[in-house]
Amino acid sequence: MLKVHDVSKSFGGLLVIDSFSMEVQPNQIVGIIGPNGAGKTTLFNIITGYLSPDRGTVTLDNHNITKKKPEKINRYGIARTFQLVKPFANMTVLENVMIGAFSHTSKTAEARRIAQEYVELVGLQNKANEKAGKLSLPERKQIELARALATEPKYLFLDEVFSGLNPTEIEEIIKLIHSIKELKKISFVVIEHNVRVISGISDKVYVLHHGVVIAEGTPEEVLTNQEVVAAYLGG
């Protein structure tokens, strides 16, 4: 189980995350929603080791992973994608995914075999030998997903994986997430600001506003919460 306990972070006196706590069970999809600037990406950066929190702890199956470096955190079984996609543009799709596979094997042939599996899983097998930089935005998001999956994580953090996609593409990624969840038994933590999308896939939702959790629960509970409606509609 992944546990985030009482995490706070401020930048130059501005409190961006205010005592945030969260629990993610194995094989569960957790959504984090909130308007721009709510601190969602900061939270991801703290959990995945890109930022250290001022206060609080992150534990994974009783291992304290607070303030560990991203490359260490990956070893505990955590992977992520980025809001602004960061594929390795001058490497092929397959090579991109191989980098993920190399996190748990040193053999090139083995890494290639694992990578092929995940390239196929996200449906990019026809573009396996193309340079990642030449692909479209949805395809690059698929690369990031395959690359993160190839590290064989137990918890996968997806930062706005749906932004910039049209409804059909969103539908496909949702299907993909569901099938991966069934196949690999991993948990997802998904950032999104589209309420409709997130309530469609999440088992549990946290609503973040100005760094504070203003509601948590099942999508139905959260969507009927007065404070949430006010935060989204009232400003």
Binding site: E71, R75, M91, I99, S103
Partner: peptide
């Protein structure tokens, strides 16, 4: 090559 292309992104891939 991964470090050359994007050092930050490479880290969470181990």
């Amino acid at each position: 090559q991964a470090v050359r292309e994007n050092q930050d992104a490479s880290r969470i891939l181990g």
